[in-house]
Structures are given as C-alpha cells and as structure tokens.
Write a protein that binds this DNA or RNA. Structure first.
Lengths: 151, 151
DNA sequence: CTTTTATCATTGCATCTACAACTATTGTAG
DNA sequence: CTACAATAGTTGTAGATGCAATGATAAAAG
C-alpha cells in the first residue's frame, strides 16, 4: 500500500542509459546503409513532412534549432536533402532529394530488422508498454511550455 | 483484441526525443551548480563507488570506455576527481576529490528539485511506471551480450 | 516612413557519444 | 625466455546536443 512520493532514482540517468544502449543497437544495424540512427530519423521526417521549415522540423523532433542546422549539414553534403530558400529571405525549406528518398527506403527496411530484433530481446509487451509511456511523457512535456505550479 | 506484432513506431526515436526533453529539463536546473546532467551522474557514481577502474565505471554507466575517458577530462580539470594509477601500470583508478564531493552534495539538492518538478509535471504514477520499465529494459539488454535468436 | 520589436536561422563554444585503430602492458603457450 | 594472445586505456575521426550570441529579415508601432 506504500506509494512512494519521493524520487526513487534519476529519470534522466535511466533514460540516458537505456538511450545509449538502444542507440548502439540501432546504429549497429543502420551502419549497413551508411546512416546514423539520428540521420535516419531526420531523413524520414523530411521525406514524410515534405518541404518543411527548419523551425517546424526542430519542433517535431523535440530538438534545438541549432542542433538541427548542424545535423542537416552532413546529410546535405551527402546529397540526401536540400536546404533551399523559403518564401521569406530569412526562412528556408528542407526537402529530400531522390537520392535521399532511396536511402530512406533502404534505411526503412534495415530499421525494421533492428526494431524486430529489439522487440524480440525485450518482448513485444514490454516494447508496447514502453512506447505508450514514452509517447505519453512526450505529449505531457510538449504541451506545457514553461513554469508549472498548476493545481 | 488486436495485439500488434509489428513495430508500431521507432523505440529509438521516442527514447531520444524524450531523452532530449528530459535532459534539457535537468540541465536547466543543474546549471545553477555548474554541472551538466551527465557530469552529475558521473560524479555521483564516482563518489558512491569509491576508487573505481574506468572500465568498471563505463560498464555501470552503460557507456563506451572511450566516452568515459573524455567525459572525465573536464571534470578532472575542474578538480572534482582524479584519475590516478591503479595496481598495474596499465590500469587506473578514478576517485572523487573533497571538492568533487562538495559539488556533488550541492548537485544532489538541485537534482532533487529537478526530479520533483518532473514528477509534478508527469505525475508520480507515470514516473514510477516509467522507471520500472526503463530499469527492466536496461536489465534485459545488459545481460544479453550479442546475438539473439533465442526462442 | 522610421523606430522598435519579434522571428528565423546560423555560428561560437563546450560537451557527449561511439567505433576503429593504436599503445602499452599483462598473461599464456611453447 | 620468447612469441602470441588478451586486456586497459587513449587518440583519431565523425557526428549529436544545446545555450548564448549574432546577423538578417520581417512585422508592429509610432
């Protein structure tokens, strides 16, 4: 009946530890198509979200805008995407090239293998529960911008 | 009644997105004591695990040995810990200094504030459920070294 | 129209992350 | 004792991450 009301461990530590493990797992697979896990995620978003403004893409990825700017660079250098001008002179549009779409298609197959392998190691139930919880936490932290003190 | 047996999303993506959000949250607090979230985690481990060999510390942190080498450098430069010689000429021992222990004590108070704030935003139940799941995943991935194909 | 403010993207700086290759040392086999 | 293998830690290379500050443009205020 005892529900602890105090922190029982560091959420950040656990999240980062598992993050490192899982990232290594995926990178191990994705290396076959020359993609880092983050690059695959980014490329997928660009393919799916069509021409998109960097700031919007950064929001979707829960990533700092400056991080996005830099992460796009090696991928643009590889010719997988372009960062062209938008409507305004200060806005830009990120778009996947044909080459980028091809690489993404390859990556998707490889990703599936990696995901299935993870599902097997952890068990499908656990993975689904984890996804639900992660989605729910992301949604909660996303809507609340700053401050709290809410009742 | 439909239980999906196929991947429903990318575990790595979700984990990294939430990881970025949560890391930002903690760093926002920890900045007050001049520590990055990773440094606090590392320093805490060094304080708790006493003089410890780098390779053992890396294992505990689920971190690559080369990453640990580099992460220790700025902290050693700050005088929070020392990387001294071990028994062998090739082994070393990491140990927290008095200064490091003081900083860690400060950090611990700040960390608690950050953790409580997170608990409030997500709700205690959710955080506890997340911790259980993260711990369980870490344990699973930890014991299995490589390969799988297990029934 | 001009001043002020807000927005968008980038750059400087510092740190985190890891694989591959390397150095050095220890351990084992012969 | 010497040759070979295993281990411990570091360095080269490459990318990920974010805050603070900057440059440039657009929007709002006057």
């Amino acid at each position: 009946m005892k529900i602890p009301t105090n922190p029982q461990g560091c959420t950040n530590l656990k999240l980062r530890q598992l993050g490192r493990m899982v990232t290594r797992h995926y990178d191990h697979y994705m290396a076959a198509v020359g993609l880092k896990n983050t690059q695959y995620a980014l490329l997928s978003h660009v393919v799916k979200l069509g021409p998109i403004r960097p700031s919007d893409l950064a929001k979707r990825m829960q990533m700092d805008a400056s991080t996005l700017t830099r992460n796009l660079q090696p991928m643009a250098a590889q010719g997988w995407l372009t960062v062209g001008v938008g409507e305004n002179a200060r806005s830009r549009l990120v778009e996947a090239t044909a080459s980028g779409q091809a690489v993404r298609a390859q990556g998707q197959r490889t990703w599936k293998t990696a995901q299935l392998a993870l599902n097997e190691r952890l068990g499908m139930e656990r993975v689904l529960a984890l996804h639900d919880l992660l989605d729910s936490c992301i949604a909660f932290l996303d809507e609340e911008p700053r401050d709290a003190t809410a009742a």
